[in-house]
Each structure stands twice: as structure tokens, then as C-alpha cells.
Design a protein around this nucleic acid. Structure first.
Lengths: 208, 208
DNA sequence: GAGTTTTCTCGACACCTTGTCGAGAAAAGG
DNA sequence: CCTTTTCTCGACAAGGTGTCGAGAAAACTC
């Protein structure tokens, strides 16, 4: 119900709502959602704890709004992967986009991976992941159709899902180790495993 | 402090302690730790909520004991990976052992991956993971030294860490989807990605 | 098997956090 | 100004955690 209580117009209350989300994103960089009290979120927006409930039903609802805010940026990222013909280029760009995402909004993405996240959030994240898997599957199918990569098994679906999950998890782990820096080496290693996993070979870009 | 309060002798109280852990493992298969009240754990061992605190400092301490109990089984698994010369055999066995681990104690392993798990548990899990990475690195180094696999980059450490993390995460995801069944197809796909990631090729076992 | 010590149990309490309610202040709009 | 909507907060109830001390139950000693 988060925003539906509030009618319309970009007014003073909207700023408070944004302030709550800003505070949440800032605090999530420091500690998990479970350790963030509603008191803290309210204090960050200079309102009382009770007033928090005017803007959000609960902490979970607030996280949902926060994820929605980040997902707008994310969808733009996904769409920026223009197909340019070379599968390795697409893979590298995709991984780089994901790495950038984690650098900029790692705290929020990290919170969505929590076991205690609500069902709704998990479904949202699963949907986002399956979109990425679809893109990966399309790439794999294309390279196989062109005779550049060996046919399955594994199926393009199983392989694509695994590579996407590997990427997300490795970025999450890297973020957990050091939130500010995500190695270029990590990106390179991911690209290598993707390439070898799909082509069963280190291809230099011979098709160019 | 969990056990240190209790002196010695395998007595009645020990059974209660085990009963608490059994109850916890059973409940973890159904819902996350955060949703399990101490009341429930105590009820499972037929004691009052207060009495729970005689056995464990807190829910986190209880989880720690539960993880320790499972880790005994796990260490035995790791040691069962006898080196038999063929890297692909070792890889397949290791992955199968991990899959079996998840089938039998997936609920506990899942709980340790939670964001809200205590620092101590995270360190324990990190230690376990790094042991597995060491084994993977040893395998990679050996195949590279034998000229069967191309040298880095990626370094054996980066590649091994990534493959181990991929495996753990994919098993965890599969467990989350359906706790009772972990696909053979998943194991096959994991083996393929390991093989291609290390050898940069689908090797039939030519060295045999 | 009585006395002593250790182990174990529980009710009562203090504390913290979440979420609701209704009274009303502050802004917006006529 | 008066009305409506937006926004704020103190007070309350509910539910969970963890502590304490009194004492029951078991174990151990002689």
C-alpha cells in the first residue's frame, strides 16, 4: 500500500518519503535490514517513528519501494546491451553492466538476497534474474546455431542459468568483501568462464 | 558458552540439547531462523522457553552448535575425495559429495547463508569454503603443470574460487527451489562448466 | 538412604521493537 | 477564514528476547 495512501502532487511529504529511502540505502551499506530499526529510518528523515507508518506499511514495504527505485536504473542497463553481433562483446558488456550495478547500488541488491526478504521481493528478484537468463540463452543459441559453440548437453537453458547465477553470486560475494571496489580481475575471470563454458574453448575473436 | 556451563557426563540434559538441535533442523526445513521463536524450539524439546537459555546463550549460539554438528559430517565428505589421478573424476566426485551434503542437510546449510547470520558463523562458513577452494586450486595447478590445461590468466586462485562459489550457490538455489530433489542434470552441468573452465575444452579422458 | 552438590526447570520481570489508533497541528485550496 | 487533505506524534497493545532467583530433580558421596 506504500504510496497508495498518498493522493497526488509532488509535495513536502514526497521529499520525506525519498529521505526515508535515502536513509535506508545509506544504512544498508553499513548493516543488514534486520538490524535497522524503524526509529533510525524515521530519524534520518527527521520524523517520529509513528510517522514512518504514514509513508510505509512496514520495513518490508519500504524495501520494496527501494528496490523498485533501483530497478528503474537496472532496466535501463539491461536495455543498453545493444546486440552488436559479437557474442564475446555482448557477454563482456553485460558483465560490466552488472558489476557497475553492484558498485552503485550494491547495498540494496545485497538486501534483496537476504533469506528473510519478503516473498514479493524474492519474486521480483527471480523475475529480474530470469530476464537475464533469457538474454544469456539467446546468446548461447545463436552461437550454437552459427556452429561456433558445441551443442548441448548442457542445454542452453541450464548453462545460461548457471552462468547468470554464478555472475550474480560472485559479484555479491565480492561486494560483501569490499563494497567499494569490485575488481577488474573478477570481471575478466567471469568473462573467461562464460567464454569457455559456452565455446568450450578460448576463442580469439576469429569471426571479426 | 553453550556447552561450557555443563560439566561432563553424557546425561539427561545432553539429550535435551540434542532434542533442541533436532527441532531446529526440522523447523529450518520449513521456515527461516528469523521466523522460528525460541518458544518453538523449547516446545520441541518439551521444556519451557526459559530453560532454553540453560542450554544455549541465544538462537545464534544454537545455530552455531547446529552448524558444528553438520560440519563433522562435512569434513568426512571432504576427506573422502581421494586423489585418483584423473582430475575429471575428482571434480565429479567433489560435486557429487557437495550435492549429497545439500540433500541431507540443506536446511542447515541454507541458514548459514542468511545475511543475518552472526559474524562467527560467517567466518566458519568462509573457512570451509576456502578449504574447498584450496582443493580446487590444487587440481587446477596440477592439470596446468601437466600441460593439460592452459595457464592463466585467470589465476588458479581466482578460477578455483569462482568455480567453488558457483557450485555452492547453484546447489543452494536448487535446494531453495525443491529441497528434496537436486537434479542429476545440475551436477552434470556443473561438471561441464568446471571442465571447460579449467581445460578450455571438452576433454574426453585422453590421459587414461 | 540422608546429605550435598550439580544439573536442570520455570515463573516473573524488565526491556526492546513493531504496529495501531485517534487527537490534532500544518499545509493547501477555495 | 473555513474546509479538506496532508502530515505528525504520544500513548497504547502485542509479541519476542534475555535475566534472575527460587527451587525441583537428578547425580554423586559417604
Amino acid at each position: 500500500m506504500s504510496t497508495s495512501l498518498r493522493r497526488h502532487g509532488p509535495s513536502k511529504g514526497d521529499l520525506k518519503q525519498e529521505a526515508i529511502l535515502d536513509t535506508a540505502e545509506r544504512l544498508l551499506a553499513v548493516k543488514p535490514l534486520a538490524e535497522i530499526g524503524i526509529e533510525e529510518l524515521a530519524a534520518g528523515a527527521a520524523i517520529s517513528r509513528s510517522s514512518f507508518y504514514f509513508y510505509f506499511e512496514s520495513k518490508q514495504a519500504m524495501l520494496r519501494a527501494l528496490v523498485a527505485r533501483v530497478s528503474d536504473v537496472l532496466h535501463a542497463e539491461v536495455d543498453s546491451w545493444r546486440r552488436d553481433g559479437d557474442a564475446r562483446q555482448e557477454i563482456r558488456r553485460g558483465i560490466q553492466a552488472a558489476a557497475r550495478m553492484w558498485r552503485e547500488h550494491g547495498a540494496v541488491l545485497h538486501a534483496t538476497r537476504s533469506v528473510e526478504a519478503s516473498q514479493e521481493i524474492k519474486e521480483f528478484v527471480a523475475g529480474r534474474t530470469s530476464r537475464l537468463v533469457e538474454v544469456a540463452v539467446a546468446i548461447i543459441d545463436k552461437t550454437r546455431a552459427d556452429g561456433l559453440a558445441p551443442a548441448g548437453p548442457p542445454s542452453a537453458e541450464a548453462l545460461g542459468a548457471m552462468l547468470v547465477e554464478m555472475t550474480e553470486h560472485c559479484l555479491a560475494m565480492a561486494h560483501a568483501r569490499n563494497p567499494t571496489t569490485i575488481d577488474d580481475e573478477l570481471v575478466d575471470t567471469l568473462v573467461t568462464v562464460w567464454t569457455r563454458g559456452i565455446f568450450a574453448a578460448d576463442g580469439s575473436r576469429t569471426s571479426e
